[in-house]
Nucleic acid binder design. Structure first.
Length: 240
DNA sequence: AAACGACGCAACCGCCGTGAG
DNA sequence: CCTCACGGCGGTTGCGTCGTT
């Protein structure tokens, strides 16, 4: 039984056979198609590579965003996620997730968190004072709890948010801080990043990163009381 | 230029669910 | 009900490529 890379000849045999007779039985198929492969291998090759309608090439930003959204909803159910992305296979999405997107979301939370911790100490003083969140432009309060794990600091984050300094100053500082991070991050990976703000959980996705000045940010802050604060859309440049 | 490590992706492996006998 | 074969799925591996030192 042959293993490893499929040759063009093998691909041709499998394609020709399936297109002519269909895949009525993967176990029997290699014998009839004169392939020295196991049925599973033939099935895999057909489903992930030869099947008509498959889209090859880089994932678009829209696809990335959709994958991330669906992954939050369904977890590692790649086949379920794949059904929502026409032309993409579960295997392709899984690979893409592990190689690109995982590190952009919570996969490296701890690493990012630790790097932010040092910065947090420099920004602690912006958390002083009080603010009323319902008067913040572009900010809406939802009631649904976050699907992600709760923030590490339980009482600290919400109290910090409520204890944020004078509203405009605070918002400006948040925007400024987030923009700096967006630019910094987008230079490395423009697709999507999840990062931790020093005093609350933040998901930041960066779109349209051809130039820094066109960065658009979707910022979602999860606070420990279970409320989701959603800043969107927001053009960081308007803050300057 | 060579060695090394990181990364991306194709492919395999093993488990599980399902349906037929 | 039990067993077995098969397909589907997700985790993992292995290899080629590319960048860095």
């Amino acid at each position: 039984m042959k293993k490893g890379e499929w040759s063009a000849e093998e691909d041709d045999k499998l394609r020709t056979y399936v297109q002519k007779y269909g895949h009525w039985n993967w176990h029997q198929l290699p014998k009839f198609a004169r392939l020295k492969r196991c049925g599973k291998s033939c099935r895999w090759r057909w489903m992930n590579y030869l099947r008509p309608g498959l889209k090859r090439g880089n994932f678009t930003e829209e696809e990335d965003a959709l994958i991330i959204k669906l992954h939050e909803q369904f977890g590692n159910r790649w086949s379920t996620i794949a059904k929502s992305l026409r032309g993409r296979t579960d295997n392709e999405i899984k690979n893409h997730w592990h190689s690109q997107l995982k590190k952009s979301t919570k996969g490296d939370e701890e690493e990012k968190c630790s790097s932010w911790q040092s910065e947090a100490t420099q920004n602690e003083n912006i958390c002083e004072g009080e603010a009323e969140s319902n008067s913040i432009d572009h900010m809406t309060l939802g009631s649904s709890p976050p699907s992600s794990p709760s923030p590490s600091s339980s009482s600290a984050s919400m109290s910090s948010l409520n204890a944020v300094g004078r509203l405009e100053d605070t918002r400006f500082l948040i925007w400024k801080y987030m923009k700096l991070k967006a630019v910094e991050i987008s230079g490395v990976n423009p697709l999507l990043q999840t990062i931790h703000h020093p005093w609350k959980r933040v998901a930041l996705s960066c779109h349209c990163l051809k130039t820094i000045c066109t960065v658009t940010i979707l910022l979602i802050c999860f606070v420990d009381c279970g409320h989701k604060i959603d800043f969107r859309p927001f053009d960081a440049d308007t803050m300057y």
